[in-house]
Design a protein around this nucleic acid. Structure first.
Lengths: 178, 178
DNA sequence: CAAAACATGTAAGTAGTTACATGATTAT
DNA sequence: ATAATCATGTAACTACTTACATGTTTTG
């Protein structure tokens, strides 16, 4: 559901052609957000139709490279999406997308949502810790139990790491004009 | 692409009805793998057709609760999927699924894939560290730069945490009959 | 001049989401 | 009795994936 906004944010960072976007989504952006060229061209077409972006054909008539640029309406749509899309703990890559939007178009008031995500992650961590105490307190664990414990520990460590990161982020995000 | 296998593994852990599966996917399983009841019923139907699972109707004729159980063919399909599906660094939840499969049906030889995923995560971490040195060495960073740095740090910390977890796991996974 | 990279699209199939739909059982 | 939970499904829509398709520009 966030693919069009991922593209809008990438275009706000730097106006590009569909091909350039596809390359950017293969490299840097692709580390936390994926989009194939087919998705990109489809969404670009839709977003031109919606009036969110304009397209300028570049180079000679033979070379049909098209550079897309976000219009004020599209910019406002990004801001609206950041404000109104309520995220869950599982949407961390989407939150990173919101951070990129916040970096490229002024402060958008992410402090409140960050606060809530921290609370939810804390609650989930506490649930995991309870399962840990209840199910993995035994001295000797079978191989299967060791693996199940490892799966749980993946969750515990992920929440712990994210919480530490999020706390550090609060200081930056909090100076906001919500 | 792994939804049917997620369901098979859940059924290997405990034969269940579609409704029970949906609940399990809402609770414990749902922390790292999602499936709605519509997906579950569709896949159960397909898997019965494929001969991977059998269904036993329980209770009176009026109450039409159906308990699904994995057949040997389905069990072998899980083993095949674990062996033959090549994962990337972004498929960590899928790797956790493979671990659950390994816990429920004997050792499946995950050591090699774990080794490769560790190598790939190390390489990605090194890429992130290079970007860090190149782009965020300055003493004073603007707000936008601080946010971009925070996004990068999320990646760095995620890889670091995962690598530590994976190294710990190697000891358990390595005693394998590949 | 040939291969790689640039550049943009369509078509078909699969998977996932949201809404609709129905009926039985259990607890208040 | 009535509301909540149990229990299973269908239909319509949207998104994503894989394969196909075409032509240009740059580099060796």
């Amino acid at each position: 559901m966030s693919t069009p906004h991922a593209i809008l944010i990438a275009l706000l960072e730097k106006p590009s052609s569909g091909y350039d976007l596809a390359r950017r989504f293969d490299r840097a952006i692709g580390y936390f957000w994926q989009a194939t060229h087919q998705q990109i061209y489809r969404e670009l077409g839709r977003m031109v139709a919606s009036g969110w972006v304009t397209v300028v054909e570049e180079g000679a008539a033979a070379s049909r490279k098209k550079i897309y640029r976000v219009l004020p309406v599209g910019r406002e749509e990004v801001a609206r999406w950041v404000r109104e899309t309520r995220l869950g703990v599982d949407d961390r890559n989407v939150f990173l997308l919101k951070l990129r939007a916040d970096a490229v178009i002024g402060p958008l008031g992410l402090g409140e949502e960050l606060r809530r995500l921290i609370d939810e992650a804390s609650a989930r961590l506490e649930t995991y810790r309870e399962i840990e105490r209840r199910d993995f307190g035994a001295a000797q664990l079978t191989r299967a139990q060791q693996l199940q414990y490892a799966i749980l520990k993946a969750g515990i460590q992920t929440q712990t790491q994210w919480l530490a990161w999020a706390e550090e982020l609060r200081a930056i995000v909090s100076d906001e004009a919500a």
